[in-house]
Design a binder for these strands. Structure first.
Length: 286
DNA sequence: CCGCGGACCTGGGGGC
DNA sequence: TGCCCCCAGGTCCGCG
């Protein structure tokens, strides 16, 4: 999936195309993604104005003039493309996305000004739900989320508190969205590599010194990835590759067998933790 | 309550 | 060319 930085990049791309524009039509081309679309999906979107697009963790929150919020999650393979006649284009904006298989164009939204936003998702792990904006505090997807890694509430103290007594390995702990919100498989591997901490270490055995290194690494890895416009990996292509987005390179993720860029003595190893690949350097991550 | 494995989907790549 | 297996950025659910 797009992790937090990629979702933030998508938000920044969608915002200039959608904000302050009225939705002229909205169509779902099938009854469901991961879950069924909201009741009367098309009717609830059509005619309302998009006030603003926010992000929380990996969720996009489209604030509508109707008083509702459209919450969207991109799953593993969700992407948006925008076709626009008069959206101002600046370096870094993404207006056209690379071609996707149109069989997986599941949602098409037309807005004022000749803007068309298309959601494409081959695996259909993404989903969209709607709720009254005023009831946001009760929305299950949002209410238990931990702090944003780039916010003030995220710190080494937060990690120590969340990990107290926890038996699971750090890899699993950092993927837990109630501990810190928005990390996924890639950036967890990268943050652990940066902080030289083993993904196999028990959460409860983190300790204050490593916790500080880890918190700094998480914060920096996320900030840099947002800065880079999100990674452009595989089927994620919310941004237009042709627009010159930085091709993110990773230190650990996906580098199995390649030499560690820090200690250069051991190759990066791939192991499986709770069913997912973990990449780390057994030489310098302890 | 916690932690883990499986399920949900489709497509791409490698081996034979 | 085809087939089969493995792999993929996430999350939810049920089991022990």
């Amino acid at each position: 999936m797009p992790e937090l930085p990629e979702v933030e990049t998508v938000r920044r791309g969608l915002a200039p195309a959608m904000e302050k524009r009225r939705i002229l039509s909205a169509r779902a081309n099938r009854p469901d993604l991961r879950f069924p679309f909201p009741e009367r999906f098309s009717e609830r979107l059509t005619g309302t104005v998009v006030d603003r697009i926010d992000r929380r963790a990996k969720y996009l929150l489209v604030r509508l003039g109707s008083g509702e919020t459209l919450l969207m999650h991109l799953g593993m393979s969700g992407r948006f493309s925008i076709h626009a006649e008069d959206v101002s284009r600046q370096p870094g904006d993404f207006v056209y996305a690379p071609a996707a298989d149109p069989r997986h164009d599941h949602v098409v939204i037309e807005l004022e000004g000749g803007v068309r936003v298309t959601y494409n998702d081959p695996r259909r792990f993404g989903f969209m739900v709607m709720f009254p904006t005023e009831a946001e505090d009760t929305v299950a997807y949002l209410k238990d989320l931990g702090p944003e890694p780039n916010g003030n509430a995220f710190s080494s103290a937060r990690l120590l508190e969340a990990f107290e007594g926890r038996k699971s390995p750090l890899k699993a702990g950092l993927l837990d969205q109630t501990v810190v919100a928005g990390l996924g498989n890639i950036y967890v591997c990268e943050a652990l590599w940066r902080s030289q901490i083993s993904p196999k270490r028990q959460c409860a055995n983190l300790g204050p010194v490593r916790a500080e290194r880890l918190a700094v690494a998480v914060r920096n890895v996320i900030a840099e990835a947002i800065e880079a416009g999100g990674s452009t990996l595989r089927d994620y292509a919310g941004a237009d590759g042709a627009m010159g987005y930085f091709q993110h390179s990773f230190d650990a993720y996906g580098r199995e067998g390649e030499p560690c860029r820090r200690c250069e003595s051991e190759p990066i190893r791939r192991i499986v933790q709770s069913g997912r690949s973990t990449f780390y350097c057994p030489g310098c991550q302890r």
